[in-house]
């Protein structure tokens, strides 16, 4: 099913056609030395049973998120590994990413952690610039699709007459997913194994930012969405369980009313936008003209 492509981006760039032209090339050559090499896994399009992130209501009362069959419509290329601390460092050195807090203390050859959603976005923008390709955070749906058996469904039963049921169910489910015996701290790549698609360290102790905002959806009796409130100040971080984290937070914590199990660490991986030959050509022509 999954096709593994090892794309050496630096090599890919060497094939840049003459149309890539001077201004673009100069940008690449400035970036070439810095451009991290990303190992990619490409997944064919497909569907899966999936419960969207967020909250759902019907007639003014909370309900369980509906289960639907969704998926990705175009092949998806995603990083096999989470972004490394050394790679993030290059973005910082280039002045395009904010330095990590000193205490984040990530070792260069391990996943970068202690990054906010905004940090991850800045990295995606920089990485796109230095590679000449379009990279972005996956949506929650894409992440679930990629994670496959590692995705954790959060369809806890909602009892509108007893709000404690859902709170207890969620708390117990999230707590059960934690392996108390595991090493804490940021582990080397591959420590949490690969899933059936050959993607590494999904649902380990580093949660991954997604592009998906926190949405509350009102459903009608038939289960169709009739209204939604979207809060993009909170993004979904995926991992062992789904987490809702404020976009500028680098180190999620539990406490107070949010008595859940917080993500241990916050990191990310990126997907590469599928570019057809035509769009790829157009992007380069545009870049050339802009120069």
């Amino acid at each position: 099913m999954a096709i593994t492509l090892v794309t050496k981006l630096a090599v890919a760039l060497a094939f840049a056609s003459p149309l890539a032209a001077a201004p673009f090339v100069s940008e690449i050559s400035a970036g070439r030395a810095e451009a991290p090499v990303a190992e990619l896994v490409e997944l064919a399009s497909g569907t899966m049973p999936y419960r969207a992130a967020g909250e759902f209501t019907r007639a003014g009362r909370p309900v369980t998120a509906p289960l639907a069959r969704v998926g990705v419509t175009v092949p998806l290329a995603i990083m096999k590994h989470q972004v490394a601390a050394a790679d993030y460092r290059r973005c910082v050195d280039a002045g395009a990413c904010k330095p990590l807090a000193a205490a984040a203390g990530a070792e260069p050859d391990r996943p970068v952690v202690g990054v906010s959603w905004r940090d991850a976005e800045a990295y995606a923008a920089w990485f796109s610039r230095v590679t000449g390709e379009r990279w972005r955070l996956p949506t929650d749906t894409e992440w679930a699709f990629v994670a496959g058996s590692r995705f954790s469904d959060d369809g806890d039963v909602v009892d509108a007459d007893d709000p404690s049921r859902r709170a207890l169910a969620r708390y117990t489910r999230e707590a059960a997913l934690k392996d108390d015996g595991e090493e804490r701290g940021v582990m080397p790549f591959g420590s949490f194994g690969t899933n059936e698609h050959g993607i590494s360290d999904l649902a380990g102790n580093v949660w991954e930012w997604t592009a998906t905002c926190y949405v509350r959806t009102a459903l009608d009796d038939a289960g169709a969405a009739i209204a939604a409130t979207t809060n993009c100040g909170v993004r979904i971080a995926e991992g062992r369980h789904r987490a809702y984290v404020t976009d500028f937070v680098r180190d999620a914590r539990a406490g107070g009313c949010a008595a859940g199990v917080p993500p241990t660490h916050l990191g990310f991986r990126l997907v590469r936008e599928q570019a057809t030959w035509g769009s790829w050509l157009m992007a380069r022509i545009t870049a050339w003209r802009a120069g």
Binding site: T57, P163, T172, R216, A227
Partner: peptide, 23 residues
């Protein structure tokens, strides 16, 4: 921070969400 997990019957009289958040 510590947590208590408390099982039992919810008391509507003590607290009720009259209407879930909506626009």
């Amino acid at each position: 921070v510590a947590h208590f997990k408390v099982e039992g019957q919810w008391d509507d009289d003590l607290m009720t969400q009259v209407k879930a958040p909506e626009p």
